[in-house]
Design a protein around this nucleic acid. Structure first.
Length: 115
DNA sequence: AAAGTGACCTATT
DNA sequence: GAATAGGCCACTT
């Protein structure tokens, strides 16, 4: 539960109009290789929770779909588009333009990707 | 308590 | 690009 809370806190830091990847959230939360847990945590977010879950996408820059999400994937895209995030023809976002680049001072662990 | 599951990631054909 | 394989760990049953 506490791990989830940490993840949610990190997701809340993603600014309006920007997106982050699951792996990125994992790194910023201090969980280098646990991107999967981030996905699971977001799956369990309550709809009324104050977490901008729609700003988190996978490493390809695409919205992750799942049989259990039926339609929520489209909602996610819609929300992002309303924030000014653009999708190309393949349904991917332009990372150069809208990927969140956190301040290294706030997140020291951001620069420790190597084993 | 062991096994299954999952909004993922990276490296390799 | 696309498809495959291996790794990762919290949560549920």
């Amino acid at each position: 539960m506490n791990t989830y809370k940490q993840i949610y806190e990190t997701v809340k830091r993603v600014p309006y109009g920007k997106v982050a990847t699951y792996g990125q959230i994992a790194n910023l939360t201090g969980m280098q290789r646990k991107a999967r847990v981030v996905g699971y945590a977001l799956f369990r977010v309550a709809p009324d929770a104050d977490v901008p879950w729609h700003r988190v996408i996978n490493a390809k820059g695409e919205i992750s779909e799942s049989p259990f999400r039926e339609g929520n994937d489209y909602l996610q895209r819609s929300l992002l588009e309303s924030e000014g995030v653009e999708f190309n023809q393949s349904g991917r976002v332009n990372f150069k333009q809208c990927q969140w680049q956190p301040n290294p001072e706030e997140f020291p662990q951001f620069e420790i990707p190597s084993i």
